[in-house]
Design a protein around this nucleic acid. Sequence first.
DNA 1: CCTTGACTTGAAATGCATTTCACAAATTAG
DNA 2: CTAATTTGTGAAATGCATTTCAAGTCAAGG
Lengths: 315, 315
Amino acid sequence: MANISGIAKLAGVSVSTVSRVLNNHKYVSDDKREAVLKVIEEMNYTPNKNAIDLIRGETKTVGVILPYNNNPAFDQMLNGILNKASENDFSVTVLPSEYNKNKEIGYLQKLKSKLFDGIIIASRASDWETIIPYSNYGSIVSCEYTHNTEIGCSYSDRYSSYLDTFQLLKNRGHFAVAFTTARLESNSTNQMIDAYNEVFGELPTYYHISDCQCLDDGWEAAKKFLQSPERPTAIYANGDEVAGGIYLYATSQQVNIPADLAIIGQENQPTGSVLGITTIDHQLTKVGEEAFNLVLNKSREKIKVPYSIIERESV
Amino acid sequence: MANISGIAKLAGVSVSTVSRVLNNHKYVSDDKREAVLKVIEEMNYTPNKNAIDLIRGETKTVGVILPYNNNPAFDQMLNGILNKASENDFSVTVLPSEYNKNKEIGYLQKLKSKLFDGIIIASRASDWETIIPYSNYGSIVSCEYTHNTEIGCSYSDRYSSYLDTFQLLKNRGHFAVAFTTARLESNSTNQMIDAYNEVFGELPTYYHISDCQCLDDGWEAAKKFLQSPERPTAIYANGDEVAGGIYLYATSQQVNIPADLAIIGQENQPTGSVLGITTIDHQLTKVGEEAFNLVLNKSREKIKVPYSIIERESV
DNA sequence: CCTTGACTTGAAATGCATTTCACAAATTAG
DNA sequence: CTAATTTGTGAAATGCATTTCAAGTCAAGG
């Protein structure tokens, strides 16, 4: 009987007193406290966290819905969340969604069933209308900008960063500018396209390749872009890994960077720094950290994390 | 009162009946079942998972102790774990340790406090002696080979793979072989050194650089190796990212791969595939998957996951 | 017509720790 | 030396769902 009442019995005190000792309440006499601690030690007792969570109604656990675990961008966010969670004695449960709406809803149900105190959504497939009702059961925080008031967010102003980047390229005399993105349906892809339209006008389809994630994909994308009759003079990649792939394919074809082709990456990853690729650092670690803080404070604020352009030799 | 007894009252049945409906027991009459479901629907009721976990004594959650989250090797393992966990309706909680023994113990305590059904240790700082006692409270599985019987493991036979690799290099006529590793104190570093000794004899210190994780580190390591008077003719890197950094530095110095320098990486990552670097695939995703299976089956087996050498153009 | 097995259902016990309430004892204040 | 606090402690209520036990109903088998 390794539970609190067993301990109480052995120590000759009441359950309440054991609980007080466990929680460092004052108003426990030294002798009883010692007696209790002694029995706890002897019995090698540890309180049952499920019972505690049940009665307290909170679990000090946050769930993180993220589509893929091996994605460098989501990884940075997760890192930020883990940092702050660790500091605040919270646990982090990874909820891989693969952009599957049913999985997402399943995870939100777990919030409702009191398994998590809050959920951070790194990226999502479901509509906000579907998600919002769950905000009654714990704080839900998004890592992209939200227009509603129910869901707080910690985000990087991507649209603005895309504008800046395209403008930078335009200023340097580039008009044939191509770019890669991740999912076609994603928010940031739309923002990227909008930003392109804003700066250069109507986007020709041959300047955009989607579904790029890693170095491999960048290599293939570069191949297509550079072999196309509408060859771009600059490519904006949706990540430094992708940018690295582009860089390596280009140099393998004796294309000079930046003379023949300018490249800009994103997220400031090691690959980019080694190859000297200019990049936009969206500070996703910071985004994750702030997202966790919002959950912790049950806040619905909207926190804009500033991005920065790191200029290197690829433009 | 959104709990099971509230539902019971409203539906005009007993708590037991509601529970039966919730758990799809047979032996519930259709009319009562419908009545209960109707009230559940109306009240928007969801059972409290903490209460369920408490009474069932299991949480369908596995904790994963991993030193760093942004490490590609651990990431692959985590991915494998997430895959299988998802399939089996388990949750995965990430427990970042930074190789801090206190943190590790703290996580093991959570196993004891019934928060997890099991714990997978991707890598550790604590001794097995410290860890083993906790195996009484749930299954603990290691992603490296364990010599004890208490802790099951799913592992890649690194020592053997290192032997193979060094032997391969030797067969190709390389005698000046250097290598990089991660932590100096780690198990695999020791195995790497042992394997070197086995194949080439006493290791000269100038052939080993530790604490390499990413492309950046590989670049710096290559710089040191290639500028050294004891310049190696082959380098074995502890990851394809690191190998990529070595490759890029070497080519930036007009060093020909593989004519002037052979490179072998590990883990079969995109960077390596793009650069055509020969690599040892330790199938860490598979290692993670098997580790999860061990937890699921409360097994203490030792599962050796076969590695494979992927030959490309860098040797 | 009686026995037996298949259904149905609810009361109560269970899992475990926290917290409120009530009360007693020991201090401190006035 | 009372009155008012501050300490110290335990009984009982609470949070919530599962499961066992007992008991009752009903139809099929002999």
